[in-house]
Write a protein that binds this DNA or RNA. Sequence first.
DNA 1: GTCCAGGTTT
DNA 2: AAACCTGGAC
Length: 356
Amino acid sequence: MNFANELVLWYHQNKRDLPWRHTTDPYVIWLSEIILQQTRVEQGMPYFNRFLAAYPNVTAFANASEDDILKLWQGLGYYSRGRNMLKTAQLVRDEHKGVFPSAYDELIKLKGVGEYTAAAISSFAVNEARAVVDGNVYRVLARYFGIDEPINSTKGKKLFQQLADAVLNKEEPGLHNQAMMEFGATLCKPKNPACGICPVSLGCQAFKTNATTQLPVKLKTVKVKERFFNYFLVLNGNEILMNKRTGNDIWTGLYDLPLVETDTLLPAHEIVTQPLTLHYFGPNPQVEEVFGLQKHILTHQRLTIRFIKVKNQPVYMEPDWFYTDLENLEKLALPKIVFIFLTNFFKFENNSLFSN
DNA sequence: GTCCAGGTTT
DNA sequence: AAACCTGGAC
């Protein structure tokens, strides 16, 4: 019995019962796979259920607005996934008569569907013989075959894809792919792998040479840029001044507050004298309250954020600024940190709209 | 607090 | 090759 078939046997005994494992509908599989990209099952599950309930088929999804999609996506991160899903759903509605593709060569053309996702959907939906290579598969293969080529190098990616193709069970590719990933996710884990109960430990190079903690090898990179965000909280009656984020920056398509960004950490009283602040609020911004500094970490950026409540209304409005009442604010997709701040602020103000 | 995990796009 | 987000482990 080879390595891959052992894992399929293991999978039959040990698989988790997950909702997207009960379907061969490529739309439902696509929904689950995009949500699960870069996301843990426990975090993605409630989003999957909400999306499926709201949009039971791809045409329903395609008929939603970007604001609707991003609002449901709020808190899940990597918001381009949601924006790309809408484009893909619209394309399926308009160019594929609402029939979601299930062939790898069609799937790979869709926005937000890369090699992994195309292989996953095509193998799960119609048993097309395509090997998935996700983070779990990299780890399982690197350990079992004792490969120390970095998994995030161009060479390493090719090597691992070839190896995954070579060990693929072409009779049952869907089952094989599920088994490889489930095994990596629950037994051959990044930390504290359960080698003691592993069905293939005797053939595992990393186990034999005590190298499980060293594999897989990943080139580390990531220089982190520091940014300093000063958000202005401006209320007018029962309305709040918001900004819609556009362009190529973080959180595109989401909503935040009027912003003055600086290159260095400045004390709040100096923010108020920044040229941009004066441009927005006139010569005498009336600061009512300064909220404490908060850190927010993204992949390549470390944000230091403070919120400043001002009494006067702006004398200049950016084109993407608008006032909205609290009822409508609830419908807007906000970055996590802005959502938490506003929720707490209005809860403190005893506004029932934000009291959950 | 710090570190790490996880696919696609440009 | 670099950018994109959040949450869990320690």
